[in-house]
Design a protein around this nucleic acid. Structure first.
Lengths: 233, 233
DNA sequence: CGGCCGTTTTCAACACCTTGAAAACGGGGA
DNA sequence: TCCCCGTTTTCAAGGTGTTGAAAACGGCCG
């Protein structure tokens, strides 16, 4: 899946690199610019999914940048950054269509939450592309509802289970090695044992295989990993 | 099709022009007025499909205008605008029949979404009418009257409870994560604990579930959120 | 004041995730 | 074929974070 891209426009280099590092660690693709002019340029070149925009910058202010952007793109989520005490001009912000504003200094969690919220609000527009169901045999997995149905019985799936089956189904008939799976689902920095993965595979098999001891779909590939397949071997 | 007409009544000229531009760009026909008196006049002359009405205005307040309008038109969607901090008088607003409140500063998307929602609600004639009741099992929820009936017994529902069940029912069988719910019902900038949400869910379950300890309709999805469903597991 | 509503806090219960140990399995070599 | 060794599965137990229930607080209004 393509990463969500965020453009950070901020003249204070310390803050800029801090933000970029943080967002990078969170799994976003990050572009940065140190002033308004470069910000616009970066926006045009990279077409990010969201912009973090400092208001007070030498040269072109955040307001100017936002105004430019809104001439052609009224949908893009833009979060304004403003220093504490520096009264944000809410009227201007509103007029220009900022989606939210964040007062420095801000907590990391708050920032991330607001970014997520803004992104979530901007999604429903282009949502609907993504497959929400997986079907095979007599099984229907509803990715949105965290449920699966088998022989007419509804079974709840947990977060990890959904992520796992989702990933494997999107790589149908490919063997995925354990490290890749751990990385994709648990995250790059995960330091757990492979037992965890096996356990979840076992859980999934119990829920969706006719005979969990002889899985037809969630197949073990000895010494490598697992693969999902719909056709029997 | 004739354009939808919106009347904006707002004494702050910057906001007024900002709103008019925005709504114009969105394809609405826009009328504007800078105070309550002119607002009523514009309403009578132009008969808009929806009104955005600032509450705090010199001379005739938004409440006064709304009261006047409601004497002759109980259907017209009216959205009240209020500045943050400025305590909104919900009871007065409700009595007068406001359709929604929007707290400044607000995001463009939020505003547009609420306008669309209000318009949708106001068009029972040509679109599939807005449901005023929700039914399932032996429960009937009356969204307009803030009551629900179960086994013939009428139970009062609070504002938040109605909003919650309304939102969830409109997203039947979808899992809504806690942040989304908090945002949709409490507002974008709500900073409360997530326990608050649970509490209201619990209240609702007590009122509409046969066995609140084992909910059939208001289902928890661990680590994600809640969903409303009518079909048994 | 007394009731209702929304919120917050606390604590207990629960589901999920993780881990270890042991058993079962599979592949390769003798 | 059988055995051996590394891999995978199972089982059971513990830890962690999430959710539920109860109680209490404050605001608002009658």
């Amino acid at each position: 899946m393509k990463k969500t891209a965020i453009l950070v426009v901020e003249d204070d280099k310390a803050i800029l690199t801090g933000l970029c590092d943080l967002l990078g660690c969170e799994g976003y693709e990050v572009f940065s610019a140190e002033d308004g002019i470069k910000g616009l340029e970066a926006y045009r070149n990279n077409r990010p999914d969201l912009i973090l925009l400092d208001i007070m910058m030498p040269g072109k202010s955040g307001y100017d940048v936002l105004r430019e952007i809104r001439k052609t793109d009224t949908q893009l989520p833009v979060l304004l950054l403003t220093a504490k005490g520096q009264e944000i001009d809410k009227v201007v912000g509103l007029e220009l269509g900022a989606d939210d504003y964040i007062v420095k200094p801000f907590g990391i969690k708050e920032l991330l939450a607001r970014i997520k919220a803004a992104l979530r609000r901007s999604r429903p527009a282009d949502a609907g592309k993504k497959e929400t169901h997986i079907r095979f045999d007599d099984v229907v997995i509803d990715l949105k509802n965290y449920t699966c149905e088998k022989k007419g019985k509804k079974i709840q799936l947990s977060q990890k289970e959904i992520q796992l089956i989702d990933y494997l189904c999107n790589h149908k008939d490919e063997v995925i090695d354990r490290n890749t799976l751990l990385e994709e689902i648990w995250g790059v920095r995960y330091e757990g044992t492979t037992r965890t993965l096996d356990q979840h595979i076992a859980q999934l098999r119990k829920k969706i295989e006719d005979d969990p001891a002889h899985p037809k779909h969630l197949v073990t590939v000895h010494a490598v990993g697992y693969k999902f397949t719909v056709s029997p071997d």
